[in-house]
């Protein structure tokens, strides 16, 4: 074979080989892109599924709360009312010396009735929805103050904005859970709740000044995880900061400008 002939043959084979490699790389890229797309879709589906589960859980919880609320209002409330009426009927027949005890008992029953009505209101999603977030929080804070061992304050800063009712309930439930935990475990004597409305966010801060907890040892209790997943559902950032003997601070950052209603 002639030299130039060989040169051409080698040139053509080399070009073919290089072209083949380029084709392989292109095919590889296409497949890889498809795979990544598929993986993303899979992840999205999973996320949507998890969201649905949380939503269903929330709905069940609200339903349960509503039932308890009705039960408290219609059943226990009615019984207490009847008890009070009967006490009143007893009033004229009681000797003077025991009258004060009777009056005290009547007052205790009245207070119980009031507590149960407040509790019933705060548990019932319908009434919370009608009251709005601020009033519901105020009611809860008042209830705490009536317990006489904790001094709770509630402050609103900035101009109030009407929120989505469903989101309001979720925010309120998260706050409620935090407050009842504080009440149970923190041994705090002081509790502050602040709502701050800014242009883009509603920031809810709740701080107790109790014994707190060590962030390292109590990292992810089911309660905290539960709160977090619920916050995530409404695009809210949840932060829980605590130091031993310094209390706990909960911060919820809820975006006011939202595209998904």
């Amino acid at each position: 074979m002639e030299q130039s002939g060989i040169t051409t043959v080698i040139l053509i084979t080399t070009l073919t080989v290089v072209l083949l490699i380029v084709v392989i790389i292109v095919i590889f890229s296409i497949f890889q892109k498809r795979k990544v797309k598929f993986l993303f879709e899979q992840k999205e589906t999973k996320q949507r599924f998890e969201e649905e589960i949380i939503k269903a859980q929330l709905e069940t919880q609200e339903q349960t709360f509503q039932n308890i609320s009705w039960e408290l209002h219609d059943n226990v409330g009615q019984l207490l009312s009847v008890a009070k009426m009967q006490l009143n009927m007893l009033q004229p027949e009681v000797p003077k010396g025991q009258k004060s005890i009777l009056d005290e008992t009547g007052e205790i029953i009245s207070k119980s009735l009031q507590e149960i009505r407040t509790l019933s209101k705060l548990l019932n999603p319908e009434t919370v929805r009608n009251m709005g977030l601020e009033e519901a929080i105020q009611l809860e804070i008042d209830r705490f103050n009536r317990l006489n061992f904790i001094r709770a304050t509630f402050t609103i800063k900035g101009e109030s904005v009407t929120l989505n009712q469903k989101d309001e309930i979720i925010l309120f439930r998260i706050l409620q859970e935090f407050l009842s935990n504080s009440l149970k475990h923190s041994k705090a004597s002081k509790l502050d709740v602040t709502l701050t409305y800014s242009k883009a966010y509603l920031i809810i801060k709740a701080q107790d000044f109790g014994i707190g907890f060590d962030e390292k040892t109590v990292k992810n209790g089911s309660g905290l995880l539960n709160m977090k997943s619920r916050a995530k559902l409404i695009n809210t950032e949840l932060k829980l900061k605590s130091e031993k003997d310094k209390g706990v601070l909960l911060t919820l950052t809820y975006p006011l400008t939202k595209e998904n209603e």
Binding site: I6, V9, I10, T13, T14, V17, V18, I21, I25
Partner: peptide, 13 residues
């Protein structure tokens, strides 16, 4: 890939 496979024809010749 490009260099080492591309030069196989060259190396054979």
């Amino acid at each position: 890939l490009i260099f080492h496979v591309g030069t196989i024809p060259f190396n054979i010749e």
